[in-house]
Design a protein around this nucleic acid. Structure first.
Length: 802
RNA sequence: GCCGGGGUGGCGGAAUUGGUAGACGCAGCGGACUUAAAAUCCGCUGGUGCUCAGCACCGUGCGGGUUCGAUUCCCGCCCUCGGCACCA
């Protein structure tokens, strides 16, 4: 009998699969297309770590399961190779990113991905740095530009001092750069934006109908941050015009004792002469200060009086107008009414500057001394004709009153900001725009795409707010596509997240060069049937990709508006208390485990570590246990299979029970419990001298998604010539799968006192009779008075005494 | 601070329309095989106590509650992970 040699087995089947093109789908004729997608990796220098393998294998198991269920599964892969992660590393090691990326991709593909038993269709590989790919990133930019969804505008943006570029809001975490963890400050500059805010409501509404992990949807909802309220006009006293404020608490308007405007507000410099200097100074200081960081969020409120007053539209009260930097220009109208009695921030501000505090919402209808802001609900007081109304009723009534008087309107605001896509870096697709003195902003004509990223060794960012491309005259200087005169190219490249916002659209059409995606293939294979990835991309990639898909739909390029029918977030692999990642320096490379135990063992071990959707701590104690399990199965198949007679009823029961449960678990991605079920069934088989081949073969089929090479080998050993993945997932008979005997429990006052086997569906009278004959029960019941019996069919009888 | 997820043996984790807590595995202990060891196989394995082939009590973060019965439901806390964080 030969021993299990994973290296031999895995190499053999990898070769066979490639020769037979088992993982290449007929994209045109497939009858049951199923697009099984995994987030494509960034090819780092360190290579894939076991956290990545955990994610990829979980997706691959699902794909293989679907294939066995009769689907034509398309499981592509590619590389997200542009962007600052690649470039920053290239700079660090002093190697050109182009060279580095090519090396890393080769390592990922040949030494790692091809060894973990994933059924990728390598004929549809997509690499984002390929001009044949990023050409279409530029095309998408042009479509959005033409559709009015890309705009060059001046705005306060996030600037990473270390990466020397601007960043999108989504790429700033706690005031730090998502990539390098360096400090991010606010800068007022002109950049290209994608107007994702136009889709805020649409993105939010569709969350109700898409089949995604709840956790992901919650994060997106919160990020979009819809808040419903009103815009209210306050006239400026003694001057024309008014200041609009946004509030969700119109019910508190009688408590407004001041008006605050952001330093960036157009009216911030509208001051009385005597206050001009002070206000100017304050604004200058505020504009120069760093972006709000965590520890600064709670900082002292500061502000300056403009010398001017506004008039409260509900009662004609004259209230001072102040400028303060805690009012954000980017949210609402950039101005608020200060209601210190019922807003904590306004309360702090009022305390600092000695402004009056009026209670207008009372929890009980009475009046109180306010030692802090009361932000809860209550009854309106000190609010004229609105007194006595509840918070919600008062809000409605006051807004109606203001609307009728032409001083307000209902309004909705979103937390979501437009997506800044300009990057002052080298390693990305150049933004396809030309600036002409005569014609202004001119898009590069589609037939001139791609605007090729020029080769240069001079690619270091210099912090001038200009991309390194600005230093390459031959790139910058061009002719205006409109008038033919001398013109200059846009030198910024686009955000890496634009590359990844549509890559899945390219997979089916990887070889198509008439457009980004071919119509027939797109309609046949998209949207993606199952997408699996990490939740860390909930507001980055997963938000951007929904936006791009919606925009392309509305611009007439796609027949659907949501990219992924289902999305499931996998858990994270933790090591030494932190997420496994290159930046944390705690990566574990899978290759050593593949060498020592084999890919099938590693696959199963990672899936057995903990729930796929939750992840868990990586440690390698126990990986040998999985290897032993496979070896036991191996030896059992080699020694104990019989083709004589019929499968035993007992084994059929085990098989059907296992198929039933495992099918359910895999559909839910509960891989850890599925593996436990295989082990249980095998433990039952192992107790026999022989098990019928029909049982073993089906066992191998259902195990195959987890240990594909291993199951192929044994399948072949049993005399089958076709790949096990050409088989069909076995069905089960619920009657055969169901238990015939249950362990019945007798409780007294809820405590287990005895248990014994009973045929399933034993009626209450029968069960009670058996229970009362039990010596243990008799002993307990001696001298007690039984009050009642509680019978739960097939479970228990609880005898309640005294 | 606000919003979510979670807290179960020595360890990873099972089990929740309220019904046998600890499946499966790791580690550990005992035994078989062996000159011996490794490997393999078999058995035991939540804690405490006792008159120890057995029996009793305790036990799912903490404190209460509802119930015949609570890991599961309710109230009040603690810890932890993730999201947001001057968003009006």
């Amino acid at each position: 009998m030969r021993d299990y040699d994973p290296t031999f087995v895995e190499e053999k089947w990898r070769r066979k699969w490639e020769e037979q093109r088992l993982h290449v789908v007929d994209m045109i004729h497939a009858e049951h297309p199923f697009f099984n997608l995994m987030m494509f990796p960034y090819p780092s220098a360190e290579g894939l770590h076991v956290g990545n393998v955990f994610a990829f294998v979980g997706s691959d198991i699902h794909a293989r399961f679907k294939k066995l269920n009769g689907y034509d599964v398309f499981e592509p892969i590619g590389f997200d190779a542009f962007g600052m992660h690649a470039e920053n590393y290239a700079i660090k090691v002093g190697k050109h990113p182009k060279k580095l990326v090519a090396e890393n991709i080769a390592n990922f593909r040949e030494n790692q991905l091809k060894r973990i038993g994933v059924m990728y269709d390598w004929t549809h590989e997509v690499i984002s740095t390929d001009p044949g790919y990023y050409k279409w990133c530029q095309w998408i930019f042009l479509q959005l530009y033409k559709g009015g969804l890309a705009e060059r505008k001046k705005a306060p943006v996030n600037w990473c001092n270390s990466c020397k570029t601007v960043l999108a809001d989504e790429q700033v975490e706690n005031g730090l750069c998502e990539r390098c963890k360096g400090e991010v400050i606010k800068k007022e500059t002109t950049q290209w934006f994608f107007l994702i805010t136009r889709y805020a409501d649409h993105l939010l509404k569709n969350l109700d109908i898409i089949d995604w992990s709840d956790s992901t949807k919650k994060i997106q909802r919160q990020w979009i941050g819809k808040s419903e309220g009103a815009e209210i006009q306050f006239q400026i006293e003694g001057a024309p015009g008014s200041i609009d404020v946004f509030t969700t608490r119109a019910d508190t308007i009688f408590g407004a004792t001041f008006l605050l405007i952001s330093p960036g507000h157009p009216l911030a410099r509208n001051t009385s002469d005597s206050h001009k200097r002070e206000v100017e100074e304050y604004i200058d200081r505020a504009m120069r200060s760093a972006a709000v960081k965590e520890e600064e969020a709670q900082r002292e409120k500061t502000g300056v009086f403009t010398g001017r007053y506004a008039v409260n539209p509900v009662n004609g009260e004259r209230i001072p107008i102040w400028v303060s930097d805690y009012v954000l220009m980017g949210y609402g109208t950039g101005a608020i009414m200060g209601v210190p009695g019922h807003d904590e921030r306004d309360f702090d501000f009022a305390k600092t500057y000695g402004l009056p505090i009026i209670e207008v919402i009372s929890p009980d209808g009475g009046s109180h001394e306010l030692s802090q802001a009361y932000t809860g609900e209550g009854v309106l007081i000190n609010s004229g004709r609105f007194d006595g109304m509840t918070t919600s009723k008062g809000t409605k009534a006051i807004v109606e009153y203001l609307v009728a008087g032409g001083a307000g309107k209902a309004s909705v605001n979103y937390r979501l900001r437009d997506w800044c896509i300009s990057r002052q870096r080298y390693w990305g697709p150049p933004i396809p725009i030309v600036y002409c003195d005569a014609c202004g902003i001119v898009p590069v004509p589609e037939e001139e795409l791609p605007v090729v990223l020029p080769e240069t060794d001079d690619y270091l960012p210099d912090g001038t707010e200009q991309s390194p491309l600005a230093r390459i005259d031959s790139f910058v200087n061009t002719n205006c596509p409109a008038c033919g005169g001398a013109a200059r190219r846009e030198t910024d490249v686009s955000d890496n997240f634009l590359d990844s916002a549509w890559y899945f659209l390219r997979y089916p059409s990887a070889h198509y060069d008439e457009g980004p995606f071919e119509k027939f293939l797109t309609e046949k294979w998209l949207p993606v049937d199952m997408y699996i990835g990490g939740n860390e991309h909930a507001v980055l990639h997963l938000m951007y990709t929904r936006f791009i898909t919606m925009a392309l739909h509305d611009l007439g390029h796609l027949p659907f508006e949501e990219p992924f029918k289902r999305f499931r977030a996998h858990g994270l692999i933790i090591k030494d208390g932190a997420k496994m990642s290159k930046s944390k320096g705690n990566v574990v490379i899978p290759n050593q485990y593949i060498d020592q135990y084999g890919a099938d063992t590693l696959r199963m071990y990672l899936m057995f570590l903990g729930p796929y959707k939750e992840g868990g701590d990586f440690r390698d104690t126990g990986i040998a246990g999985i290897r032993k399990f496979l070896e036991r199965v191996w030896h059992f198949v080699m020694s104990s299979v019989t083709r004589e007679g019929e499968p035993s009823r007992d084994m059929l029961h085990w098989l059907h029970k296992t198929i039933m449960r495992v099918t359910n678990d895999i559909e839910l991605l509960d891989y850890n419990t599925a593996i436990a079920l295989y082990m249980e069934m095998f433990n039952a088989m192992k107790k026999r001298d022989h098990v019928h081949a029909d049982i073993i073969e089906k066992f191998l089929i259902i195990l195959a998604p987890f240990a594909p090479h291993f199951c192929e080998e044994l399948w072949e050993y049993m005399g089958n010539s076709e790949s096990i993945f050409t088989q069909r997932w076995p069905g089960y008979d619920p009657d055969v799968a169901s238990e015939k005997v249950v362990e019945f429990v007798v409780q007294i006052n809820g405590k287990v006192r005895d248990k014994f086997p009973l045929p399933v569906d034993t009626p209450e009278g029968e069960a009670k009779k058996v229970a009362l004959e039990s010596e243990k029960v008799k002993k307990r019941l001696h001298g007690e008075q039984v009050i009642k019996y509680i019978f739960v069919p097939n479970k228990l009888l609880n005898i309640v005494v005294r």
